[in-house]
Design a protein around this nucleic acid. Structure first.
Lengths: 126, 126
DNA sequence: AATATATTCAACCATAAGGGTGAATGAATG
DNA sequence: CATTCATTCACCCTTATGGTTGAATATATT
């Protein structure tokens, strides 16, 4: 997955209006631009621009039928993003496990202060 | 959870440099500002500012000891954010289930086109 | 053909974001 | 006490963002 893509997704999701749009689409299915705009105290144009941002991030797709544009949420980017956060958590937990092992191994040498979470790695704790 | 908070977290995570900082911290534990900056082709000042953004989003905490500031990743906001994406997926799946039920119920009336995913709700498909 | 509807495009404005530099602050060290 | 080191603060610049309005485009409707 492109790092640039992830940035676009997160930036798109970083705006309240856009998150609300996404939520609306997810719970109500595809909606027209006007229908979406009706939910917001904001010009239709602005909503249209927000949709464009979501579209460029791949969070939303557009199906044009006649003069009406139906906007639908896209599930895949959500998974990808969730995965990034999940990976980060995994690395974290792996490192914590390693730390704990170290502490347990040293247990008879010097009694550690406990609390592996604040007593961080080779750099952190003085 | 505050919506504003979520926005700050996602905006903070939306920048590549900041994601790299987070990753570094998660895999190496707490690091000094200078140590972090060494990884980037960018002024120390800029990195310092990125750290501040992460800090304001709660993604990172600072422990100052003497003249050195140790920056550590914070796990909790990651969970919250992951949860937001997860919730969205859940709503999505719930709605799809409901749609499938509808389709199955109508099965003898008129043979549907199948494909519940593109044939969206009451608004979408013409 | 004329008009109304749905949507985008273009230009504009204010403010935020991301980067840089130089000075200021605070702590260690000779 | 002067100096070096670690970091932030203040200011500047350029570009992006979120919002506005008015015009343009494309499709329906009468």
């Amino acid at each position: 997955m492109d790092d640039e893509t992830l940035s676009r997704i997160l930036k798109a999701a970083g705006d309240t209006t856009r998150r609300r749009i996404l939520t609306l689409l997810v719970q109500e299915g595809a909606l027209r631009v006007t229908a979406l705009a009706a939910h917001f105290d904001m010009s239709l144009n602005s909503v249209s621009k927000h949709i464009k941002v979501l579209e460029e991030a791949g969070l939303v797709t557009r199906r044009t039928v006649g003069r009406e544009h139906f906007i639908a949420a896209e599930l895949e980017p959500l998974k990808v993003t969730e995965a990034w956060f999940g990976d980060l958590k995994s690395i974290w937990e792996l490192r914590l496990e390693a730390l704990e092992e170290l502490l347990v191994a040293k247990d008879d040498d010097n009694a550690p202060t406990g609390n592996a979470r604040s007593g961080t790695a080779r750099n952190g704790t003085a």
